[in-house]
Amino acid sequence: MEVGTKRPGALKGALGLCFFLLLVPAVVLAQPDPYEILASATREANSGDIEGALQTYLKVPAPEPGEDGGAFVRSRMEAAKICFSVADYEQSEALCREILGLFPENLEAGNLIKQVAVAQTPRWLRFLKDMGTYFPTLLRASGMTILLVLITMVVSPVAGLFIALARISRIRSISWFFWCYIWVFRGTPLLLQLFFIYYGLPPLGITLSPFTAAVLGLGLNYSAYLAEIMRGAIESIDAGQMEAAKSLGMTYRQAMRRIIVPQTYKRLVPPVGNEFIALIKDTALVSTIAMVELMRAADQIFNTTFNIFILVQAAMIYLVMTSIFTISFRRLEDRLGVYENR
């Protein structure tokens, strides 16, 4: 007992040390290792117990200041993702905010909050936003559609008139040649004609830009149609008109220019108007030869967004264009008909 009597302080100290040595591990063991929890939660998640994993993730305590927060951030992030995946956006966002409270710089949490915001936006609103985003692109592409329509609208009636006059010409070879022309261009699909001009001519040594090919294809095709309409209109004018013109001493050309052709204008408006409306829609075909116009732009955007409303939007732009045409041709017809008694 000498030792005991001799060194009571030492004993006390030893006891204190023992206590300390026992207590600290006890406390440490009672406070489970965050990484251990993270690992077990991950195992649960991998085994398919998502609900259990979520609960376990949430057991990871927030680190004290200065402590390592790795396990905490990871576990809250995983929990937030689980919440996101089951559409519990509120909880998901709350967890992300918890991370950001301690680590404001955390990118992953910030991004997930943005995704939560997007996910919470109603579908229709998201579509609307897409439409707003891509509308300028569609409008710009419509410019090309309009340009193609306008060029064809100027070229094909002029060409059509000359072809119509050539068709009723008494010179057989000219009439026959244009009969063949009309036969081919009215009798085959416009799509095929465009393909032929764009892909079929280069091997023959003629390479055209998509724009030139598109203008050429539309122009040739529509000239053929308009020529037939105009020929019909010219032939529908009473033969007496030509006789009256001749009796005044007019040449055939003068009679055509001054008397016959001007009388066809009003009769031409409805069928030609129809053709031009068809033309607006037919320009969509040139998207197949690498021309970026309204249809192609809409198609490309649709293929990245899968937003059907982009197509609706394109449809609406087409409708606006065709409506403007319909109304204008109606007005034009009325104006050209002033000399008629109705």
């Binding site: 008109q241 009796s247 008629e340």
Partner: peptide, 16 residues
């Protein structure tokens, strides 16, 4: 023809 005037049964005025 320009020296000879003609009037038709159905007039054939230029309607436009």
């Amino acid at each position: 023809r320009s020296e000879i005037g003609m009037v038709f049964q159905h007039f054939h005025l230029f309607p436009h």
